[in-house]
């Protein structure tokens, strides 16, 4: 069997300061190539901290994180990170946003155009290629951010609660769009969320994090059929898995 694409071994992280807070403690996690993994946990359990370590913005204070066998050293286009906050560049058109990473890499205009054309089609925003981000809805902006990261063909896609700020309906639509995208591209994804339904709908496997300091409490394989659809949310198996997750999370929050 091949080594996992992303490998966190004994990872601990303490935020510096007069009273250092331990956000993560002795956390082990493997992410296989092509896998869609959701990191599920209560607010403040260190999910974002872990993702920022994966993205290269934080260095673990203990343990190591390897991507493709190499220890992660700083951010870069190999680690496609979509921040929790809205980070679409508002002074660039949608197409320029999509092509940003390609311009940074020095890809020529024709090839850039080809890639951005395909991504525009994938996220269904062909009509908005020249629009300013202020004319997009929050959900559309987020999809542009995801596609912008895909443009540079990263080894792994790191999504931090991408749909956290959306209303329930838009959220469901965006989960659909992301699932379609993933079913076509089969990228390795780490998806952070605090919403069990969302994790079940999008992921192949769910790692439940314990309350701070975070460590992997349990992992749940999501054996729901793909392609997923509206019906998926009402399958008996979906509900059973959800119950399992809730119970896992409950014990995760005990002792607070």
């Amino acid at each position: 069997m091949t080594a996992p694409l992303l490998q966190a071994a004994g990872v601990g992280y303490s935020y510096p300061g007069p009273t250092p807070t331990k956000a993560l403690d002795n956390l082990d996690l493997d992410v296989e190539e092509g896998e869609f993994l959701a990191l599920l946990g209560p607010v403040g359990c260190g999910k974002t901290t872990l993702l920022r370590i994966f993205a290269g913005f934080l260095e673990p204070t203990e343990g190591t994180v390897r991507c493709g066998g190499e220890i992660i050293q700083g951010p870069g286009p190999r680690l496609g990170y979509v921040l929790q906050e809205q980070s679409i560049f508002p002074w660039m058109s949608v197409r320029d946003n999509l092509e940003f990473g390609l311009v940074a890499r020095g890809v020529d205009a024709a090839e850039r155009h080809e890639i951005s054309d395909e991504l525009l089609r994938l996220i269904g925003l062909e009509a908005f290629e020249a629009a300013w981000p202020k004319d997009l809805s929050a959900g559309m902006s987020k999809m542009v951010e995801v596609a912008r990261v895909l443009a540079t063909d990263p080894a792994i896609l790191l999504l931090d609660e991408p749909f956290g700020a959306l209303d329930a309906q838009t959220r469901a639509r965006m989960q659909d769009a992301l699932t379609r995208l993933w079913e076509q591209r089969r990228k390795t994804v780490v998806f952070v969320t605090h919403d069990a339904d969302e994790a079940l709908y999008v992921a192949d496997r769910i790692a439940v994090l314990s309350h701070r300091p975070g460590r992997v409490k349990t992992t749940v394989a999501v054996d729901l059929p793909r392609p997923r659809s509206f019906e998926t949310r009402f399958l008996a198996r979906f509900v059973a898995l959800k119950r399992m997750l809730w119970e896992g999370m409950d014990s995760a929050t005990q002792g607070v």
Binding site: P77, Y81, S87, F89, F100, R105, E145, R148, V149, T152
Partner: peptide, 8 residues
């Protein structure tokens, strides 16, 4: 940070 992740 978004730019750094895109290789800028």
């Amino acid at each position: 940070e978004a730019a750094a992740s895109l290789g800028a």
